[in-house]
Design a protein around this nucleic acid. Structure first.
Length: 645
RNA sequence: GCUCGCUUAGCUCAGGCGGUAGAGCACUUCAUUGGUAAUGAAGAGGUCCCCGGUUCAACUCCGGGAGUGAGCACCA
């Protein structure tokens, strides 16, 4: 006699075991139709699941996140069924849910074409019309293996054989299509309202480049057509913000064949780049970093000593000159240790914080490059802190304060933290790892923020924290990091004299806030859709004359503002003011300063923002104090400005 | 690196069963001096990514390469 408690607290009693679908029907036919799955005592189940004991039951519809997940998962099955209907020779492998959609990997004799995708989508729609029941069943492993062997699904056989344990496995059948699956799934194929196949690409079986390449089809699925439309609009918006596109439009940088993965910075882009570097320089100086600069080319033997050559030889550029082999540095840390090693260091010198805007080159695999986000030449806001084991925690804590402050200044408020701990293959004693991991955990906990633990994901030389920020499109971008290193200082002979006058090896903390300038600028461009906060804007204001008559006044005003340290252009072209406004709006210049006879006469300018707002007519002094204030707030959001006061 | 697609004027893109090509914007010149998202006219501008092959003829077809896009793999 199950007593069912619904999420609103109401209780329904039944005189015999009931399925989730029965419960929905009991509440109302509308809900019965909308029900995609259920949640019984916290577990997500099919609507056919039978409840025989008292339980808390919630019905899952397309409006729940759970419902969406069920739709997407079932949609992957729907697609697989369509593919096999059209291409009986295609073997199914796996088809999970991903963010905003799903994919399914197939083994097929040839790649799928865009035309195939259309046909598949059409067949999917046919199957939706057929409204096939989706039925769950269980089978023993042996039976399942025999079944899939008999129909030639070798990959499924491999999957089943790799599932540990002897318990029964669940299967879902719709029409003539059956797939191994944990479920739950929608009750019938008629439940899909909005889906679209988006792309096709190769993907390795089991994610291993040594395995066969499968054909992966991506799709997206939503609870309603409106949601699908919103999603497609979001993709369009992301495309508009693409930093590669904006980089060209705003004349920030370009790439060309002769230097793949290595940006050519244009005047405007370089101003942006330098504004960021100036800022970082200032901030780091304030936090007692000593900035240094080390060579681009370093004899290959150093990289052999550091151990990098053994691991990354293929990814390093090298140069031969005068019978010596040099590597173009792929990272700065070995060089920083060389600086540390000059002169005898005392424990009194620690912590020693060395920073470098170090230009590095790495031969990234061709397929991995992506605009500024992944390049072959880049500059890191790199820093290495040499300290004692006891100083790790305070150094990490201090670094995190700095990192949060910097991210806030760039306009990022939401930061994700992840701690990666000891991997199986590692150097250093367990005591040392215990201590280092604990230091990082303490520093993380001190922030009061949630953080994620990635056990075993640390580097072989020490644990690390990675900092990702969420941009305004909700995308997660990994930028900063701090890594404890027990290995390299010893390997490269770094030592200091301790209080007891013994020689000890310092711990090294590798750290970066922005990561690489290139990548960070890519993130900034997309976050701001190219409309940089004023402090970063390549041009902060542009003066527009209405007729030639105001040219002298414009030039004088430009000179005045430039002398105050602002980046101000003058657009004296023989064009109508509407045309100039349009152009500078498209160039995302924060302020447009219109000058006509009236303004010349009264010694003022008419100020318009790139957002189209009219700030009215003001004197040059009034404007420059407005601009100064705008620049001083960096990219910080309004809320934080309040707390800063 | 792997799979598939793409590469035509400075930019965004058309185009043709194989007969060397076009638009808009930008650029130059001229007219116009116009008050908040495009003033008008004329002109100039091309190794159709590169190297081979097939062909009377290749931007177009075939082979190889480069770059690039999506995804996979990689990311000290």
């Amino acid at each position: 006699m199950p007593k069912i408690t619904l999420p609103d607290g109401s209780v329904r009693e039944f005189d015999k075991p009931v399925s989730v679908a029965d419960i929905a029907m009991d509440i109302g036919p509308g809900l019965a139709k909308a029900a995609l799955a259920g949640r019984v005592a916290g577990e997500l189940v099919d609507t056919s699941y039978v409840v025989s004991d008292d339980a808390e039951v919630a019905l899952v519809t397309e409006r729940d996140d759970d419902g969406l997940e069920v739709i997407r998962h079932s949609c992957a099955h729907l697609m697989a069924q369509a593919v096999q209907r059209l291409f009986p020779k295609a073997q199914v492998t796996i088809g999970p849910v991903i963010e905003d959609g799903f994919f399914y990997d197939f083994a097929f004799e040839r790649p799928f074409t865009p035309e195939d995708l259309e046909a598949i989508e059409k067949t999917m729609k046919d199957i939706v019309k057929e409204d096939l029941q989706v039925e769950r069943s269980v089978m023993s492993r042996a039976d399942a293996v025999a079944h899939f062997k008999s129909i030639g699904e070798e990959y499924k056989v491999e999957i089943i054989e790799s599932i540990p344990g002897e318990e029964e496995l669940s299967f879902y059948k719709q029409g003539d299509f059956m797939d191994l699956c944990r479920g739950p799934h929608v009750p019938s194929t008629g439940k899909f309202k909005a889906f679209k196949l988006t792309s096709v690409a190769g993907a390795y079986w089991r994610g291993d480049a040594n395995n066969a390449m499968l054909q992966r089809i991506y799709g997206t699925a939503w609870g309603s057509k409106a949601d699908l439309k919103l999603y497609l609009q979001r993709l369009e918006e992301a495309e508009k913000r693409d930093h590669r596109k904006l980089g060209k439009q705003l004349e920030l940088f370009h790439f060309q064949e002769e230097a793949p993965g290595m940006p050519f910075w244009h005047p405007r882009g370089w101003i942006l780049y330098q504004a960021i570097q100036d800022y970082m320089q200032q901030v780091q100086r304030k936090h007692d970093y000593k900035e240094i600069n080390t060579p681009q080319l370093v004899d290959y033997s150093l990289w052999e000593k550091s151990g990098h050559a053994a691991k990354f030889a293929d990814e390093m550029f090298s140069v031969e000159s005068d019978n010596r082999m040099y590597a173009i540095k792929p990272m700065n840390c070995p060089c920083h240790i060389q600086v540390f090693n000059q002169g005898l260091k005392s424990y009194r010198d620690l912590p020693l914080r060395l920073a470098e805007f170090g230009s590095c080159h790495r031969y990234e695999p061709s397929g991995s490059m992506h605009g500024l986000m992944r390049v072959r030449s880049f500059v890191q806001d790199d820093g290495h802190i040499f300290c004692t084991e006891d100083q790790i925690q305070s150094e990490v804590a201090e670094f995190m304060d700095l990192l949060f402050a910097v991210y806030r200044d760039f306009g990022f408020d939401e930061i994700l933290l992840r701690l990666s701990t000891r991997p199986e293959k590692r150097v250093g004693s367990d005591d040392l790892w215990d201590k280092a991991e604990q230091s990082l955990k303490d520093a993380l906990n001190a922030t009061g923020l949630k953080w994620e633990l990635l056990p075993g994901e640390g580097a072989f030389y020490g644990p690390k924290i990675e900092y990702s920020l969420k941009d305004c499109m909700g995308r997660i971008q990994q930028c900063g990091t701090i890594q404890v290193d027990f290995f390299l200082p010893e390997r490269l002979g770094a030592q200091y004299v301790a209080e007891d006058s013994s020689r000890k090896t310092p711990v090294m903390l590798h750290r970066a806030i922005l990561g690489s300038f290139e990548r960070f600028i890519g993130v900034l461009i997309e976050h701001y859709a190219g409309a940089m906060p004023t402090w970063l804007s390549p041009v902060q204001a542009v003066l527009l004359n209405i007729t030639d008559k105001q040219a002298d006044y414009v030039l004088k005003t430009q000179e005045n503002l430039k002398n105050q340290g602002f980046r101000v252009d003058a657009d004296l072209r023989n064009e109508k003011v509407g045309f100039k406004i349009r152009e500078h709006t498209l160039q995302k210049t924060p302020y447009m300063l219109v000058v006509g006879d009236k303004e010349v006469e009264s010694g003022t300018i008419a100020v318009r923002t790139r957002g189209g707002e009219d700030l009215g007519t003001m004197t040059i002094d009034e404007f420059s104090s407005h601009l100064r204030q705008d620049v001083a707030q960096f990219g910080r959001s309004g809320a934080q400005l309040e707390s800063d006061k």
